[in-house]
Computed example of a mutant assay.
Amino acid sequence: MSNQNFRNASPTDATRCFEIETLAYDGDEAATHEKISKRIVEYPQGFLILEVDNQIVGFINSGCAYDVEMSDEDFKELIGHDPDAPNVVIMSVVVDPAHQGLGLSTALMSEFVKRMTDAKKETIHLMCKEHHVPLYEKFGYRYTQPSASDHGGVRWHEMMMDLRRD
Rank of each mutant, 00 (worst) to 15 (best):
P146I: 07
G153C: 09
H151N: 04
E69C: 13
I124L: 00
M109L: 15
V88C: 11
T144F: 04
V57M: 07
G63I: 03
S110E: 11
R155P: 00
I20L: 12
G58E: 01
I40N: 12
T117C: 01
A148C: 01
G80Y: 07
D26N: 14
D82Y: 07
C128W: 03
G153Y: 03
A9W: 11
V41I: 04
L50R: 07
P97H: 13
L23Y: 15
V52C: 09
R164S: 06
S10C: 12
A14C: 06
D72H: 13
V94E: 05
I124Y: 10
Q55E: 14
S110G: 13
H125M: 03
M1F: 06
S71P: 02
E111F: 03
D72M: 06
E29V: 08
E19C: 08
R115Q: 14
E77R: 09
N3I: 00
L104D: 05
D72R: 12
M116H: 11
E34K: 07
E122L: 08
P44D: 01
T32F: 07
L78M: 13
M161E: 01
K129L: 06
E51W: 09
V89G: 14
I20C: 10
H131C: 01
T106E: 14
S110Y: 00
H157F: 15
C128H: 10
E29H: 03
V41H: 00
V95A: 09
C17R: 07
K138R: 15
V95G: 12
H125A: 02
M160L: 13
Y143G: 08
K129D: 00
D84Y: 05
A98G: 06
E34S: 08
R7K: 03
M159W: 05
H33I: 01
G103V: 01
W156H: 12
S10A: 08
S105R: 06
F6G: 10
V68N: 08
R39I: 00
P83V: 03
R7D: 09
A107C: 10
F47K: 03
E73N: 13
Q145K: 15
V113M: 12
T12I: 08
E51H: 09
L50M: 14
A98L: 06
V93K: 12
V57L: 10
K114F: 11
G80I: 05
Y143H: 12
L50W: 08
N61A: 03
E111Y: 12
D150W: 01
R115N: 13
D13V: 03
Y25W: 14
R164G: 00
V113I: 15
N5H: 13
F6M: 05
Y25T: 04
L78S: 06
V113F: 11
V68I: 12
S10F: 10
G63N: 09
K138G: 08
L163H: 07
